[in-house]
Computed example of a mutant assay.
Amino acid sequence: MSVVTLVSGGLDSTLIAYLAKEEGVHQHPLFVNYGQRSLERELAACQRAMQKLCLDNLKIAELSGYGGLIRSGLTDPAQRVLEDAFTPGRNLLFLLVASAYAFQVDAEAVSIGLLHEETSIFPDQTSAFLQDAERIIARILGREIKVLSPLAAFHKDEVIALARSKGIEGTYSCHLGGEIPCGACIACNEFRVEEI
Rank of each mutant, 00 (worst) to 15 (best):
V3E: 04
V4P: 00
T5Q: 02
S8N: 08
G9D: 03
G9S: 05
T14N: 00
A17C: 07
Y18W: 09
L19K: 04
L19D: 00
A20R: 01
A20Y: 01
G24E: 06
H26N: 10
L30Q: 03
V32S: 06
N33S: 14
S38C: 14
L39M: 13
E40H: 10
L43T: 14
A44F: 06
Q47L: 11
Q47T: 14
M50K: 03
C54L: 07
L55I: 03
L58A: 06
A61M: 02
A61C: 05
S64V: 09
Y66F: 15
R71K: 15
S72K: 06
G73E: 03
G73A: 08
A78Y: 10
R80E: 15
R80G: 12
E83R: 15
A85D: 11
A85C: 14
P88Y: 12
P88D: 12
G89F: 07
N91D: 11
L92G: 12
L96E: 04
Y101Q: 14
A102M: 06
A102L: 03
A109V: 02
L114E: 00
L114S: 00
H116A: 12
T119V: 04
F122C: 03
D124C: 04
T126D: 01
S127Y: 08
L130W: 01
E134F: 06
R135Q: 13
R135A: 12
I137Y: 03
I140G: 04
G142Y: 05
E144H: 13
E144N: 10
I145L: 06
I145A: 02
V147H: 01
P150G: 09
P150D: 06
L151F: 03
H155F: 12
H155N: 10
D157H: 09
L162K: 11
S165N: 11
S165K: 10
S165M: 05
K166G: 07
G167F: 05
I168G: 00
E169P: 02
G170C: 11
Y172G: 07
C174A: 15
L176R: 15
G177L: 09
I180G: 09
C182R: 09
G183V: 13
C185T: 07
I186D: 14
N189I: 06
E194R: 08
E195T: 10
I196N: 05
